[in-house]
Design a protein around this nucleic acid. Structure first.
Ligand code: FES
Ligand code: FES
Lengths: 143, 143
DNA sequence: TCCTAAATATGATTTTTATCATGTTTTTTA
DNA sequence: TAAAAAACATGATAAAAATCATATTTAGGA
């Protein structure tokens, strides 16, 4: 479904959302440990998330990663699309040029309503929305 | 979702189901051309499908690939599992040890209906079922 | 101002997946 | 019984994804 990188990025961002209150900063090292992804790997992903304005960072001692209010309002889909691209939900599961209502592949009818609802769930729910669910123990993070 | 190999295999098998009536055999070369996958690549996949009793073949001149009645009754899921493995539908999309109803990850609720729809569509429908839909122009194959 | 701790930039390596190639076996047919 | 046409087996190469490494820049604090 998602690439490893996309999974890791989602985990990292949600970890941040839950653990960095206000301007409290979290180190790449700590995120790495908590979500069990090698530091060098997650660091690279975090840097790209910063470049795309999905999370925020500060360098130097006392630096680290954190989320602004604006960051918290970013829809989840942006994390996925940053890494796996926009085609993920738009391409046909069997390889038709584009998923096509008019000339559907054999699996289209069975899956597209559910696929569409997944897409909208990622489009209309923000990082904060998902973090809230975790805080309320309605869902859990890996580890 | 599926690997390229799995997509190709599904396409190849459905092509076979539609074009090989009875004991009529289809060449790897023809399948390759029709579904736009390099011959050497699809040939390798076809051979593995034969080894798993999902399709049938005969060597030599007048040889080729075809489907027995038994082959036509094989559920689609077998093609996918042969190639992408059984974990595809059982593993958590965010990396929890296993997809878990009791302790779900933040995306579980959103994604489960999609995955479930895909899984059941593949488990409860046979190769022939899908071929019939295509023959009745209710769905189409790539290209 | 200098040292240190952090992110950042960049690129190298490894692993996996996708693709290509080539020789071997089987079977039909002349 | 020889030639040809097909699948089959095996492995080589290429491309992409995942992982690791290292030098640079920035900012805080002594
Ligand atoms: S998923 Fe194949 S056409 Fe929509
Ligand atoms: S728990 Fe993550 S997909 Fe079910």
């Amino acid at each position: 479904m998602f690439s490893n990188s996309a999974k890791y990025a989602i985990n990292a961002v949600l970890y941040l959302a839950i653990h960095s209150k206000g301007s409290e900063k979290i180190l790449a090292r700590d995120i790495s440990g908590s979500i069990s992804v090698p530091k060098a790997y997650i660091a690279k992903l975090l840097q790209e998330l910063v470049r795309h304005d999905i999370i925020s960072s500060e360098r130097g001692p006392k630096g680290g990663f954190y989320l602004t209010e604006a960051n918290r309002k970013v829809p989840m889909i942006q994390i996925v699309e940053m890494i796996d691209g926009e085609e993920l939900f738009k391409s046909c599961v069997l390889g038709l040029a584009h998923c096509n209502e008019a000339k559907p592949c054999p699996l289209h009818e069975k899956i597209s309503p559910y696929r569409w609802s997944l897409l909208t769930a990622l489009e209309y729910n923000t990082i904060q929305d998902y973090a809230d669910e975790i805080s309320k123990n309605k869902s859990y993070l890996p580890q």
